[in-house]
Design a protein around this nucleic acid. Structure first.
Length: 475
DNA sequence: TATGGGCTGAC
RNA sequence: GUUGUCAGCCCAUA
């Protein structure tokens, strides 16, 4: 429903009908962006941050990124598409405020969204204008901090993928570090101490007081709750473009400390794993690290969720580990498997009445392909088979329910080549659809080949193709 | 190689 | 009311 209204909006804004955009139209979108209201000629006396922030190129980049997201509204209800107009009218005033360090961000709108594990994530959505300014902040901060960040930090960083972090963990285990200290920072984003964050930023970019003030004001902007404004004295606003890099700036201190102590660790956002050789060493190191985090960094460690244990038992970024002859193997964490099954199940329920080939190609395949592309690095030969069969079972279930009446079932089973007697016995049984879709007559009526010809995604073939590609010579 | 659309995953 | 960063893949266009 949400997606539908979004899609309608998109069709409405585009001048052509439902066809793909012509190159002229796509350029027109970019062209509209380039004639934006941002003034040229900041003539920076030196490369000061405020000038870089106000630099036309930076702002245009940010602008393009924000405009990409058209259709979403900010805390003030302004549509992103209207930002261009708004900026054209008000840019001079805003620029002046930014230069004098007087710009005041608006309160964020509080929103709760469900997490995949069942919990809720609270976040504050800034106004469209504030998202825009924070985006340019991010683009200015990134080149400054990116070279400083640790090689063991993988979250929110350009050109760094989750699988890199997982492979790093695998390397440690191959070297014999087979106990992991899983450090859970409780509500990390809410606990970020402003003073320490600000002093880090000020040390790295001395003299940029307008920017420091701007960042500080973003840190201080409160959330609207029941019409009341709540001030914040710690934490970074989740939902703002600059929050991820701010979190990395804070946790960089942890990376550096762990490296100084000679630990092997890998970190993805607030998910930090330290690898050691024995449990005893792990317990000792954990106590010491916890002390550092809480006393030096002023963050909270969640002792309940943190643990020192074998990596085989835990999960990291959706993956888990196991040990085999050759060393450490990756597998899909059990929770990730149940999650994809749940979402396929839901998709199938929604797509029950729909045209099957279209349903497969338009909704089912893209979803499954996305999941597979993330988890394809795991050893999942067996799992791929299981998922394939489970998936076909689900689709046979749809097909069986499609034949609403007993005689349709009978004639269709006959058409599929079953004998009259066999078809009759199956068509008129009293079992439920899930039983029938898994039973032999539906396997006969709709063999694997049938779904292959429909173009249904197959985990097994995708896995084989991926491994073939891996082993293929480069060039 | 670059734009634009879609989908998924991590946090 | 559905945000953010990052990444991957698929598709379209030149």
């Amino acid at each position: 429903m949400n997606q539908q209204s979004k899609a309608e909006k998109k069709v409405g804004t585009s001048s052509s009908s439902r066809e793909a955009k012509s190159p002229e139209e796509t350029r027109a979108l970019g062209g509209a962006v380039s004639v934006g209201p941002i003034k040229k000629g900041c003539n920076p006396p030196e490369l000061r941050l405020i000038d870089r922030l106000l630099n036309v190129d930076n702002l245009n980049d940010a602008f393009i990124k924000v405009v990409d997201n058209r259709g979403s509204a900010g805390a003030d209800g302004m549509e992103v598409g209207d930002l261009k107009l708004f900026l054209r009218k008000n840019w001079e005033a805003i620029e002046g405020q930014l230069r004098q360090g007087k710009y005041q961000p608006q309160p964020v709108k509080k929103v709760e969204i469900p997490k995949p594990d069942g919990g809720v994530r609270m976040l504050g959505i800034p106004t469209v204008l504030d998202r825009f300014i924070q985006q340019s902040l991010l683009q200015v901060l990134t080149p400054i901090w990116e070279p400083i960040f640790s090689d063991n930090s993988f979250g929110f960083r350009p050109k760094r993928k989750a699988i890199d972090a997982i492979n790093r963990a695998k390397e440690y285990q191959d070297e014999g570090y087979r106990i992991v200290i899983d450090i859970d920072l409780s509500k990390f984003f809410d606990e970020v101490p402003h003073q320490r964050l600000m002093s880090k930023i000020m040390l790295k970019t001395p003299g940029e007081w307008e920017i420091h003030k701007l960042i500080h004001r973003y840190l201080l902007t409160g959330m609207m709750k029941d019409g009341m404004l709540e001030d914040r004295e710690k934490g970074t606003p989740q939902g703002s473009p600059a929050s991820p890099i701010l979190s990395n700036i804070v946790l960089d201190e942890l990376d550096k400390e762990l490296e100084k102590r000679g630990h092997r660790h890998t970190r993805y956002a607030d998910d930090c794993n330290v690898y050691v050789k024995t449990r005893r060493a792990g317990e000792r190191a954990f106590a010491s690290i916890q002390n550092f985090i809480e006393n030096k960094m002023r963050l909270k460690v969640n002792k309940e969720k943190s643990k020192v244990d074998s990596p085989v038992k835990g999960k990291f970024l959706g993956y888990s580990f196991y040990y085999k002859k050759g060393g450490t193997g990756l597998r899909v964490a059990p929770k990730s498997v149940t999650r994809i099954k749940e979402s396929i199940k839901e998709l199938c329920q929604r797509g029950r009445g729909k045209h099957l080939p279209k349903f497969i190609s338009k909704t089912l395949n893209p979803a499954i392909r996305g999941w597979f592309n993330y988890y394809r690095y795991a050893d999942m030969k067996k799992l791929a088979h299981e998922l394939d069969e489970w998936l076909r079972h689900r689709l046979r279930n749809i097909l069986w329910r499609h034949w609403k009446r007993n005689w349709t079932r009978f004639t269709n089973l006959r058409k599929a080549g079953l004998s009259e007697q066999h078809a009759a016995r199956r068509a008129f049984n009293q079992r439920g659809p899930w039983f029938n879709s898994g039973a032999s007559h539906m396997n006969l009526a709709f063999p694997k080949k049938y779904f292959d010809e429909l173009g249904l995604f197959s985990f097994v073939t995708a896995l084989k193709a991926f491994h073939a590609k891996l082993e293929a010579p480069i060039i």
